[in-house]
């Protein structure tokens, strides 16, 4: 055993304490938001939603749970913000049972913000539940639910989360009389994905049967493994972890147009605010790797002598 580990338990606890101090320290110090540079895959994600026309349907699948909340909930909130701002028809569902509470909360919160921007009387009132947005809910089966959706959305969810009959909802009817029936009828599907079931299953079981563009926000753990799908064009936009969510928030905040709506909601900062803590903790890990390797090579040389 190398000489560096005289008391491994003490060293371990010191490292834990150091990490805690660094993360809490960056939270307490008034460091401000660091400047953001947007990576191409995040820009593509933003552009994919921005390319949709008002009235277009978008399917958003909340495939994450509270364990991935800091990485994916900011992305989910920002996506809903952009979707409502574009006046899209927002169809949502969830594949992870413990994430349903987060999904329901995010959808209603962003719908409420959207209501502050758009007229609320008559036919133009936006967004109305059942007509402009709907939360279909959750079912067991994981990837089987995606397979079911390719054969018919209304049949997959006979009733939406609040209990209304899905078939009769006006949200499926487009302005040109076209009706949304399957995944292939969506100009964009987005999955906020923490693992399995998630983007891999949407690609394999969704795009494996129907042709539709798909974008995704994933945790940083899974983002390198999704790059082959992004480079092949199977994914048209990719937000990688909290960094990707921060870039997306930055793009949305920057593109707010106060003149258009007269009301500007609070800026999205949940992920942006975490960039300092993320940077500091990364530097700590790099420092620990460097120090431990220096100690290792030093002890190796001493041992040879």
């Amino acid at each position: 055993m190398p000489a560096i580990s005289q008391d491994p338990l003490l060293i371990r606890r010191l490292i834990f304490l150091l990490l805690a101090v660094i993360v809490v320290g960056t939270l307490l110090l008034p460091l401000g938001t660091p400047p953001m540079v947007v990576n191409q895959e995040s820009q593509d994600f933003y552009d994919a939603v921005a390319a949709l026309k008002p009235g277009d349907p978008i399917l958003i699948s909340f495939d994450f749970d509270p364990a991935s909340k800091p990485e994916l909930e900011p992305a989910a909130r920002a996506l809903l913000r952009q979707a409502f701002r574009r006046r899209l028809r927002v169809v949502t569902l969830g594949l992870w049972q413990t994430g349903i509470g987060l999904a329901a909360e995010a959808i209603e919160a962003e719908a409420e913000i959207a209501r502050s921007r758009f007229p609320q009387e008559g036919e133009n009132a936006y967004p109305q539940y059942g007509k402009d947005y709907v939360f279909l809910g959750w079912q067991p089966g994981q990837f089987a639910l995606i397979v079911r959706l390719t054969e018919g959305i209304q049949g997959a969810f006979p009733r939406e989360f609040r209990g209304a009959e899905t078939e009769r909802l006006p949200i499926w009817n487009g302005s040109n009389g076209e009706k949304v029936r399957t995944l292939g009828d969506f100009p964009l599907v987005v999955t906020i994905s923490a693992g399995n079931p998630g983007i891999d299953e949407w690609i394999r079981y969704g795009r494996g049967k129907e042709d539709f563009p798909i974008a995704t926000a994933v945790t940083a753990v899974t983002s390198p493994g999704r790059m082959p799908f992004y480079k092949s064009g199977q994914i048209i936009g990719l937000l990688a972890g909290m960094r990707g969510a921060a870039e997306y928030e930055y793009l949305l905040n920057r593109s707010e147009d106060p003149e258009k709506f007269g009301v500007t909601p609070p800026p999205l900062v949940a992920a942006l605010q975490g960039m300092n803590a993320l940077s500091a903790s990364h530097f700590l890990i790099i420092g620990l790797v460097v120090v431990s390797n220096i100690m290792y090579f030093t002890s190796q040389r001493r041992g040879r002598r």
């Binding site: 060293i11 371990r12 620990l288 790797v289």
Partner: peptide, 22 residues
């Protein structure tokens, strides 16, 4: 559920730091 689920997974950050050194 939210705090418990999130906290249980956030513990891994400490173990990554420890593993990075050891």
């Amino acid at each position: 559920i939210v705090p418990l689920s999130a906290t249980l997974f956030s513990i891994l950050a400490f173990f990554i730091a420890s593993a990075a050194f050891r």
